[in-house]
Write a protein that binds this DNA or RNA. Structure first.
Lengths: 256, 256
DNA sequence: TAGTGGTCTAGACCACAAT
DNA sequence: TTGTGGTCTAGACCACTAC
């Protein structure tokens, strides 16, 4: 038998967090609204600063609230962006649209990105993923994706220059606009499968900075993705998402 | 130009966290070893309790350390379990093995599970996922998976009784041992695709309890999975993993 | 300039582990 | 019983934001 919401939280900070969460979910506060901050909670509940912080930390960790130092605590915009693998990896679509931009549009946001490329010698972990020797030349490209001008995704890709060097697609350039499959098709590298490995982990300091995440307690979804032509890797890539802003979907066909 | 590790962290707790992280990664402490606790840090660094806690919180959030109240702070066992979609969803394998058990074995652990089933009326969210009317009867099954006797995965599945009711597979029973595809094949429901939606979010209180997660700051990976027979859902399921203990892999074929 | 959240000190009490 | 981490009080200073 469930008593529903009549449980008494054993700790003060949980009680306060429950109150605030209830108010948000009930609609007393809307996206972007200012919430009672540390000082307000101290006064309203008669608790010390640390206890007020603990209560707000619960909401921040749940992705319901975000603190802007010097300004206040605000309700987080909540809608997740959906990244659908079956939308991205079909030859017909890949050639003409940016998968990221259409994901963002579908979530009602405006998407664009920045990127920089440079040839480097493959570090050992990347060499392993590309099945080449460490130190072999690869093209490294970093992307930062923005939705409504706010950073929302990072990625970093590596392509062996043994494959792309000297070809028209050596530099990914606006590569995010056309996709890896279409680019590789242009140089007769016909990708036949992609492997994506998904993990969740704590955000690293540089990710916190670049994605504008809270300094403490942030986590990210990471995809480690590799494109293959007959079991030979032609591109590998790390993709980083704020953990609470994205949803990844996969459609898996079951053969007879 | 990178200066490597010679940066000076601006905050005391970060400095302490960096020291401890370095010691762990350098191998001064091994999996399961006891780390300096709050009291030791207070003495060694001459800081207040809250600052020592903040330092340890960084390591706990990164999944490097785990606190056992009353006992101390210990280095977390680190190896992730790999859940590979291409291992799970092939008809030949699915009939004879437990996908979970073989994942665990591959990570060098012993896997088993508990489960309970009961018929219920479909709540609205589940009805929507199964494309049936709310209140229609469904079989609900809860699983808890253990690796080396420690809880490592939760799941909860729902199947419309309009499909399975009165058949030999009405109760999933040891369903985790054979898989949904093989069970549905037995009653001539031939599943042709599966959709998995992956998200990361803060752990809920009941998940914290059942998975033995730390009370504060824990996050989980969640898969919302549905099996289809020609666009008609025959099973849907929520799967919950401790965020820092799992890796999900997907192989995506690219047609010509 | 006034107010905010982030960091920090110096105490305290508790439930729970290990002994 | 002793020590541990978890919670909490009551202060303080800082960098930053908004005005």
């Amino acid at each position: 038998m469930k008593t529903g919401s009549s449980d008494k939280p054993p700790h003060r900070y949980e009680e306060i967090a429950n109150d605030l969460r209830g108010a948000i979910l009930r609609g007393d506060y809307h996206e972007g609204d200012r919430l009672p901050g540390e000082n307000a909670i101290m006064k309203n509940y008669g608790v010390a600063r640390a206890t007020a912080r603990d209560a707000l930390a619960v909401l921040r960790h749940e992705g319901l609230a975000i603190a802007r130092p010097g300004a206040g605590v605000f309700v987080t915009p909540s809608k997740r962006i959906i990244r659908d693998s079956s939308n991205r990896y079909s030859r017909t679509r890949a050639a003409n649209t940016s998968p990221f931009r259409s994901d963002a549009t579908r979530a009602g946001q405006h998407g664009n990105w920045e990127h920089t490329s440079q040839p480097i010698e493959a570090p050992s972990e990347i060499a392993q993923r590309l099945k080449i020797e460490p130190g072999q030349p690869v093209m490294e490209t970093r992307y930062r994706y923005l939705a409504d001008e706010r950073p929302i995704q990072l990625s970093q890709s590596w392509e062996p220059l043994a494959i792309t060097g000297g070809t028209p697609v050596e530099y990914p350039e606006e590569g995010a606009a056309v996709g890896v499959i279409a680019r590789m098709d242009m140089i007769q590298q016909h990708i036949d499968h992609v492997i994506e490995r998904v993990t969740a982990r704590a955000a690293k300091p540089e990710e916190i900075e670049q994605l504008n995440l809270p300094r403490r307690g942030a986590y990210v979804l990471m995809i480690d993705r590799t494109h293959y032509v007959e079991d030979r890797p032609v591109e590998t890539c790390d993709i980083i998402f704020p953990g609470d802003r994205y949803e990844l979907t996969y459609t898996i066909p079951i053969p007879d």
